Amino acid sequence: MSFIEEFKKFAFRGNVIDLSVGVIMGSAFGKMVTAIVEDLFMPMVHPLLAKADQHWSSIVIGPGIKIGHFAAAVLNFFVISLVVFVLVKMLYGLKELEKAPNADGSTERPEIRDALKK
């Protein structure tokens, strides 16, 4: 088996393609979460924590000890965790809505052709 044939066999295996799609979707999801946190939530938090003359994340308590930077990282972690939790909960809610029972109690979705026959 030639090198190219082996590469084709490896690259076009189902799990490699699935993993590639997952990485791409994860990257896009990460950018979306970062945008939500930086553009929506943090502008609301900064005025509550900052003094008028300085940004609260630039607070230093000693030589090289950036407590403000650490606090900002911790706060970002918790806000990002909260946003991811809410987004995942919304997605699962949509999934459950899709599985909601019909009027007759079944969870199967009727096909269009079946509805047209009736």
Rank of each mutant, 00 (worst) to 15 (best):
M1S: 08
F3I: 12
I4Y: 07
I4W: 06
E5K: 09
E6C: 03
F7R: 09
F10R: 11
A11Q: 06
A11W: 11
A11P: 03
A11C: 03
F12T: 09
F12M: 07
G14Y: 04
N15A: 11
N15T: 11
N15D: 14
V16I: 14
L19K: 13
L19Y: 10
S20W: 06
S20M: 13
V21T: 09
V21R: 08
G22D: 09
V23F: 15
M25W: 07
M25S: 13
G26E: 04
S27W: 15
S27N: 15
A28K: 15
F29W: 13
F29A: 15
G30C: 04
G30L: 01
K31P: 00
K31W: 14
A35W: 10
A35Q: 02
I36C: 01
V37H: 00
V37S: 01
E38T: 13
E38P: 03
D39P: 00
L40V: 04
F41D: 00
M42E: 06
M42P: 02
P43D: 00
P43R: 01
M44L: 14
M44Y: 05
H46E: 14
H46I: 13
L49F: 13
L49E: 06
A50P: 04
K51I: 15
A52F: 09
D53E: 15
D53I: 05
Q54F: 12
H55C: 09
W56A: 02
S57F: 06
S58L: 13
S58P: 02
I59A: 08
I59E: 11
V60R: 06
I61T: 15
G62W: 02
G62K: 03
G62P: 02
P63E: 13
P63H: 08
G64T: 02
G64H: 05
I65L: 14
I65Y: 05
I65K: 05
K66Y: 05
I67G: 03
H69E: 14
H69K: 09
F70V: 11
F70D: 09
F70C: 06
A71M: 11
A71V: 10
A72N: 15
A72T: 02
A73Q: 14
L75Q: 03
N76R: 14
N76M: 09
N76S: 14
F77M: 02
V79D: 00
V79P: 02
I80K: 08
I80R: 07
S81V: 04
L82T: 09
L82W: 05
V83T: 09
V84D: 01
V84P: 00
F85G: 00
L87G: 00
L87Y: 00
L87R: 00
V88R: 12
V88H: 05
K89C: 03
K89A: 14
L91T: 06
Y92R: 12
Y92N: 12
G93N: 05
G93Y: 02
K95E: 12
E96R: 12
E96Q: 11
E98N: 11
E98Q: 11
K99Y: 05
K99H: 08
A100T: 15
A100V: 10
N102S: 06
N102I: 00
D104Y: 01
G105L: 09
G105T: 08
S106F: 04
S106M: 03
T107Q: 06
T107A: 07
E108W: 03
R109P: 00
R109M: 04
P110E: 10
E111L: 14
E111N: 07
E111G: 06
I112E: 15
D114A: 06
A115R: 11
A115C: 11
L116C: 01
K117R: 07
K118R: 05
